[in-house]
C-alpha cells in the first residue's frame, strides 16, 4: 500500500494529520507493507521571518487579516493539537519560508530519509521555535536526520531541486488538491485533511480489503 501525502512543514493540520495517521498505523496489522511518500507543497510561499514579531502578527500581516482573526485561528489549531497530543506552541514558533527546506527535503527523499526529514522539520517549526528558513538551522536539522551537511549547504547555495519542488506542487494542482494535508492511497483513494485516527483506521482497512 502506498500513501502519498502533500504537505508543508508550516501546515499545522499536516503535523496533526501525520500524528493521526501514525497512530492508525500502529493498530493496522499490515503496517509493514505501507510505503509513505511525502510531497512538497508551499502553503505560504511569501512567508518571512521577522525577528521579534510574534506568529499571529506575522500571519495576520501576511494574510491581510485582523490580528484577532489570526489569534482565533491559531487558538483553534492549538486546542486541536493539544487534544491530539501534538506539540504546537505558537508562543515560540517562527513563521518562515519553507522553500529552501523543501529543496533539501527533495535530497532527503532521494536518500530514503524523506519521512524522517518531514517529521524533524514539523517538530522544529511547531515545537522548538526553530527558524526553518535559516541556512545554518536547515543544515543542522538535516544532519540530525542523517544527511550530509556539506551537500545540504551546496543545495542551499544554489537553486538545486527547485524544479522538483515545483513539479510536486504542480502535481497537486493537477490532481485538484484544495487543502493540505492531502492523502492519496494507491493512486485510487483520496483523503483530505487531518481526519480523526478512527477515520484513518477505517481507510487503511477499507483500502486493504478492496485491494
Amino acid at each position: 500500500m502506498k500513501i502519498t501525502i502533500w504537505s508543508d512543514f508550516v501546515c499545522p493540520f499536516c503535523f496533526i494529520g501525520q500524528s493521526h495517521l501514525d497512530k492508525a498505523l500502529k493498530s493496522f496489522e499490515h503496517a509493514d507493507e505501507v510505503e509513505i511518500e511525502y510531497k512538497s507543497f508551499l502553503l505560504m510561499p511569501d512567508a518571512q521571518n521577522f525577528p521579534g514579531q510574534d506568529y499571529a502578527q506575522n500571519f495576520a500581516n501576511l494574510k491581510g487579516m485582523p490580528i484577532q482573526q489570526a489569534q482565533a485561528m491559531l487558538k483553534n489549531v492549538t486546542d486541536m493539537a493539544e487534544a491530539s497530543g501534538v506539540d504546537i506552541n505558537y508562543d515560540i514558533a517562527k513563521l518562515a519560508s519553507t522553500t529552501d527546506a523543501h529543496r533539501v527535503f527533495q535530497y532527503a527523499k532521494e536518500q530514503g530519509l524523506g519521512n524522517e526529514f518531514f517529521k524533524r522539520f514539523y517538530a522544529a517549526h511547531f515545537s522548538e521555535g526553530e527558524v526553518i528558513s535559516d541556512v545554518d538551522t536547515i543544515v543542522r536539522l538535516a544532519e540530525e536526520v542523517g544527511l550530509d551537511g556539506a551537500k545540504v549547504r551546496n543545495i542551499l547555495g544554489s537553486e538545486e531541486n527547485a524544479d522538483k519542488v515545483n513539479q510536486e506542487i504542480s502535481e497537486a494542482r493537477t490532481v485538484g488538491v484544495q487543502g493540505v494535508p492531502f492523502f492519496v492511497i494507491n493512486n485510487k483513494y483520496a483523503v483530505s485533511g487531518a481526519q480523526p485516527v478512527e477515520q484513518f483506521e477505517y481507510v487503511l482497512n477499507q483500502v486493504w480489503e478492496e485491494e
Binding site: 499545522p12 486541536m80 490532481v175 487543502g179 493540505v180 487531518a194 477515520q199 477505517y202
Partner: peptide, 17 residues
Amino acid sequence: LKSLDKNDSTAFVCDVN
C-alpha cells in the same frame, strides 16, 4: 479518485490558496 469518508466527518485542512 474515490473518496473514503466513513461518515460526515469534518476534515481539518489548510487551504492551498
